[in-house]
């Protein structure tokens, strides 16, 4: 096989791949035209959770920041939405903008103490931060204490609009991670993950790179939180800042395959479809969910995508610049 031939077939493959991806996106965007209300409803959940999972993947899978505290940002998004629309009569667009500002500021503030911690200390530190925010909101009269707020303006949002919003978030989250990894920062991240000491010697700014990823993930999770609560429409501090969100992010990423872009896509789909299916087993659903998590990890410790990649060498979104085959 000549050099040229290999190249051209590689281009062809890239062409096929992007064609398929574009076709799938179009098919998904048109879902409101042919899908039922239930399909749209499930779609909202899948793509919202995809965005959450992909961002947690960026943190844990690529930046080595295993966080159990990013539910804080979901709660912040939820309460921004509630306060802006209920207390001040603002709109949804305004909620998104303000939530971004708050998310960036808050993640900058907490990054000072949090980035001093490493490894498991970071994991627990983020959780303690999140619990502190939860306690703060529970005791804050402005947000009606622990009694919660009804996001009444969200009652009448058409489901298709939410679906398209969630789809956009999901796609952007995948694209964002893809382009971050293809950029120079992506190289730094990989170097940092594989050997932090050597990377730093070679001039990778550990702190800055990590901080940028942290900011991006936190902001994006906050935006997703706003969208999720436009659907849920009733926010209480406990559930909004609950560890359940972190559990679902860990589930999606680890089951799908950590450190792969495809992993969270598979993981989010599995998680949401599984939760829907488990509504058929009221009272038993969490036992089954927990068992599935344990069994999958025992069978495929690198997640589903890790197992597929190990067997077939297949990657949908290759972040490596391929030299030659």
């Amino acid at each position: 096989m000549t050099h040229k031939h290999v190249l051209s077939s590689a281009y062809k493959l890239i062409g096929i791949k992007s064609g398929v991806i574009v076709a799938a996106i179009i098919a998904l965007a048109l879902l409101p035209l042919y899908g039922s209300a239930h399909a749209i409803n499930v779609g909202i959940l899948v793509f919202s959770y995809l965005a959450l999972g992909q961002m947690w993947n960026l943190l844990a899978g690529y930046s080595g920041l295993v966080s159990l505290g990013h539910q804080a940002f979901i709660g912040i998004g939820a309460y921004t939405l509630a306060v802006v629309t209920v207390s001040y009569g603002g709109g949804f667009f305004m909620s998104f903008l303000i939530s971004i500002v708050i998310a960036v500021l808050f993640s900058l503030v907490i990054s000072f103490p949090i980035f001093k911690l490493s490894g498991v200390y970071f994991t627990i530190g983020t959780w303690i931060v999140s619990e502190s925010v939860l306690m703060f909101f529970r005791n804050w009269r402005f947000v009606n204490f622990d009694a919660g707020m009804n996001i009444t303006r969200a009652f009448r949002i058409p489901q298709e609009n939410l679906y398209l919003g969630a789809l956009a978030l999901g796609i952007v989250s995948v694209a964002l991670v893809y382009f971050i990894l293809r950029s120079k920062m992506g190289l730094s991240l990989m170097a940092m993950r594989d050997n932090p000491a050597a990377a730093e010697v070679r001039g990778v700014h550990l702190y800055k790179t990590k901080l940028i990823c942290f900011l991006i993930a936190s902001t994006f999770i906050t935006i997703t939180g706003v969208l999720l609560y436009m659907n849920i429409a009733f926010v209480m501090p406990g559930p909004a800042f609950g560890i359940d969100w972190a559990v679902s992010m860990v589930f999606i990423v680890v089951i799908g395959g950590i450190g792969t872009i495809e992993g969270p896509i598979i993981g989010a789909a599995i998680y949401v479809f599984l939760r829907q299916f488990l509504f058929n087993f009221p009272g038993m659903s969490l036992i089954i969910l927990g068992s599935i998590a344990v069994i999958v990890i025992l069978v495929a410790p690198k997640g589903i995508m890790g197992a597929i990649h190990g067997k077939f060498g297949f990657e949908l979104f290759s972040v490596r610049r391929k030299m030659e085959d």
């Binding site: 860990v250 589930f251 990423v253 009272g283 927990g290 990890i297 410790p301």
Partner: peptide
């Protein structure tokens, strides 16, 4: 079986065990 595979799989396994225990107790 998972402890050598990094922090995240162990995290999920212990999450799973926690969820299973409390739901069996609730059952």
């Amino acid at each position: 079986r998972v402890i050598s595979k990094g922090a995240e799989p162990a995290l999920l396994v212990t999450f799973g065990v926690a969820i299973i225990i409390w739901n069996i107790l609730e059952f």
